[in-house]
């Protein structure tokens, strides 16, 4: 942790918020945003909200899966194409 680095301002922290929660920043930037979020009462709830929102979005996976009849059709067409396994 480099303590000589100046603290990010709120605007820069929020501009990088999505990239931060997505883990898409460089290691130093991830750390800089994290330091800001840990210390800033304004920005911290935004990050928390963003994470909850993305977790809820990820949950929608369970709402939709490949229907059994489609699965069967895929397997049948693969067998027609020469696939010998199941």
């Amino acid at each position: 942790m480099s303590d000589d680095m100046p603290m990010l301002d709120c605007r820069s922290a929020m501009q990088q918020l999505w990239d931060y929660v997505d883990g898409e920043l460089t290691a130093e930037r991830m750390q800089a945003v994290e330091r800001h979020l840990d210390a800033c009462a304004n920005c911290h709830p935004h990050a928390e909200f963003a994470e909850r929102f993305l977790a809820a979005l990820h949950q929608t996976r369970e709402d939709r899966s490949c229907p059994q009849d489609v699965r069967a059709k895929v397997m049948a067409s693969l067998r027609d194409a020469g696939m010998k396994v199941t």
Partner: peptide
Amino acid sequence: ETLAAVMNQGEMRKDGSDQLLS
């Protein structure tokens, strides 16, 4: 876009619609 989304989140928290996420 990030800033706009963050502002929208702020509004959701203010009007209570963020409770929906739980």
